[in-house]
């Protein structure tokens, strides 16, 4: 979504790189220089980029574990409640609460809840769906999903200053440096 009206506010400065290696090297320099509000963009996952810039790992696995356990409990409780409490059927005198036969639906619901948590969790933690983001204002950014790599230093960074940051990014080997409008 491009806005044509000029704004004075800047989201930050964006630098373009040719390869994964180049953007990772540049990210190391940017972080070493003391910037804190930085984000990298790439057409392929680069594990190092997140390690260098954010130095944190996602909580997603813990959420998935919780989701899976919830699924298992839901499956077992549903079957126990339906077969023992709400709608007991006496078939050949077999026990109502035969937990062995409850294993499979509980197992399937474990996987179902865990998988949905993984997918929805990833989307929600990533703040998606999000149709607008300032980086899309840079025309060159369309290449971020094809074959170019980008680093953005945001204006919210305490060390940010328009000219100085652009200059610094150029020195890290960027092929191009662009202003990102808010």
């Amino acid at each position: 979504m491009h806005t044509n009206e000029p704004t004075n506010r800047r989201h930050g400065v964006m630098a373009e790189f040719e390869s994964a290696q180049a953007v990772v090297d540049a990210a190391r320099k940017v972080m070493a220089h003391g910037f804190t509000k930085v984000e990298g963009y790439s057409p392929v996952p680069i594990e190092e980029l997140n390690d260098i810039i954010h130095q944190t790992r996602t909580v997603l696995p813990k959420l998935v574990l919780a989701g899976g356990l919830t699924g298992m409990a839901t499956g077992f409780a549903l079957q126990y409640w339906a077969s023992v409490i709400e709608y007991p059927m006496n078939i050949g005198g077999r026990p109502q609460a035969s937990w062995i036969t409850f294993i499979i639906p509980s197992y399937e619901l474990t996987i179902l809840f865990a998988a949905l948590t993984a997918a929805i969790g990833m989307i929600v933690l990533n703040g998606l769906p999000q149709p607008y983001h300032p980086v899309f204002n840079v025309d060159r950014f369309a290449m971020a999903s094809s074959d170019k790599f980008f680093l953005v230093v945001e204006s919210a960074d305490p060390k940010f200053d328009q000219a100085g940051t652009s200059e610094f990014l150029r020195s890290t080997g960027a092929k191009g440096v662009y202003d990102v409008d808010e």
Partner: peptide, 18 residues
């Protein structure tokens, strides 16, 4: 609205592996 940020990709890779 995927934009391929480092954080996006990191969570994405974890989610895919899971």
């Amino acid at each position: 609205g995927w934009r391929g940020s480092a954080r996006h990709w990191h969570r994405y890779e974890v989610a895919t592996l899971i």
